[in-house]
């Protein structure tokens, strides 16, 4: 569904060379340390980073030179990107107004019920709790009916309880709305819980791609071995009575 082949070199010496495919209706985790090129890849997919060599194809159509608003790929940053001056209701109307199309109240009311944010409609973002803000931001993204949803470290900095709640929620909405998600993180635990397909990125290169069970059996470099080790140790802790 989404074919990515990017080969970019930057003035600071960093080079991004990633090539991978994203299947429709799949939850993809892009895992890597900070500075590995995860966010740069997301920016290139969403249209905020120029692609010097390569392409981004969505449903076989080359979108490399399209403006971000024409790609139908929604980006959700770690800080949620809620517009501070708009009420929740207005945040949900935004994708319609921005595109100059009439507001589809039926979609909004369905999503609002599904996300349990009916009671938040008149509130401003600064009047929402962390979890409420996450739900509103995700609801707004879905109202836009994107082909692909890009989540940039959406669970970073949340406490354990909220993180686990949101993991369940993300899994649920992915299935409920048949979403194609690329979720960037540096936390292997998120990959374990959510990743149907995992891409490990290091120094601007994809060094592993596949399902979680393949991660245990593949040939691995030091970084992947480190992730395996972390997950094994975590498994031991969890299974220890």
């Amino acid at each position: 569904m989404l074919d990515i082949n990017i080969s970019n070199k930057y003035k600071n010496g960093f080079s991004l060379g990633v090539s991978f495919c994203i299947k429709e209706n799949s939850y993809n985790i892009m895992l890597g340390p900070s500075g590995s090129g995860k966010s740069l890849t997301l920016k290139a997919i969403s249209g905020f980073e120029k692609i010097y060599g390569g392409y981004v194809r969505l449903k076989k159509r080359d979108i490399s030179n399209l403006a971000p608003e024409k790609r139908n790929i929604v980006y959700l940053p770690q800080n949620l990107g809620l517009f501070p001056h708009l009420r929740v209701k207005e945040q949900l109307y935004f994708p319609f107004k921005a595109r100059g199309i009439s507001i589809d109240e039926s979609i909004i009311s369905m999503i609002v019920k599904e996300f349990n944010i009916v009671h938040l409609m008149e509130r401003f973002p600064n009047e929402l709790s962390g979890g409420e803000g996450q739900r509103v931001a995700l609801a707004r993204s879905l109202v836009a009916r994107p082909d692909v949803l890009l989540l940039d470290e959406p669970l970073t900095g949340l406490d354990f309880h909220l993180k686990m709640k949101l993991i369940k929620f993300l899994k649920n909405i992915k299935n409920r709305f048949s979403l194609t998600i690329i979720h960037v993180t540096h936390d292997p635990i998120e990959a374990v819980y959510l990743g149907e397909e995992i891409f490990i990125i290091q120094d601007g290169r994809i060094i592993f791609s596949g399902a979680l069970d393949q991660l245990w059996t593949c040939k691995a470099n030091g970084f992947v071995q480190g992730i395996r080790q972390e997950l094994k140790e975590l498994g031991k802790i969890i299974t220890t009575p």
Binding site: S46, E69, Y75, L76, Q78, G81, F94, P95, A98, A144
Partner: peptide
């Protein structure tokens, strides 16, 4: 924050719509 403008663009807003409805009011 730059991300706010990025979100607006990916939600379908052109750069001028983003300026007049997000950046300028903020």
């Amino acid at each position: 924050e730059q991300e706010i403008e990025m979100v607006s663009r990916t939600l379908g807003a052109s750069s001028s719509y983003t300026f007049f409805h997000i950046t300028f009011p903020l």
